[in-house]
Amino acid sequence: MEETKIVNGAWELSTFHFPIEGRGLKTMLKNMKDKKLVGFKCPQCGMVYMPGPFYCRKCFIRIDDEAEVSDHGEIMTFTIGYADVRGNPLDEPRIAPVVKLDGCDSWIMGVLEGVKPEDVHVGMRVKVKWAEERTGSLQDMQYFLPE
């Protein structure tokens, strides 16, 4: 059978307006300007989340207590990127670790510099390298370095 014509269409998502609870993210970003990492702690079970939701994900109670976490931690898992989002090859492989910062129960993802891909491993101790100029953006926490 022959190919049939294509008609173009679109879901106009640009007309959509999403309100998203951002208290945890905004608290974290505000404190990053001062090189501090701040999450939220559940008074019942003690879990510390960063960025913090406004309810504990284990106890389902409202949590409002801020808690500072360290900018040092350990690698829980990692990947090494060789291609970008679209599959185009990167110039240099890029290590993306998922890090559990000391004092925090949730994990964050970032980029790891100063380590060769073959040397990165689970359990490796890392620390945050802060950007020189910080504006309250996710890029204030520029990358991780080995401790």
Binding site: G22, L29, A83, M109, L138, M141
Partner: peptide, 30 residues
Amino acid sequence: VMTMLAAGIDVTGGSGMGAIGGGSAGGISF
């Protein structure tokens, strides 16, 4: 994803917190 963009995430994944790994392969690689 839109909120992370508003918070300054680097979409090329080069630096900063949350560096987007890319589509479905990102999360799966971990």
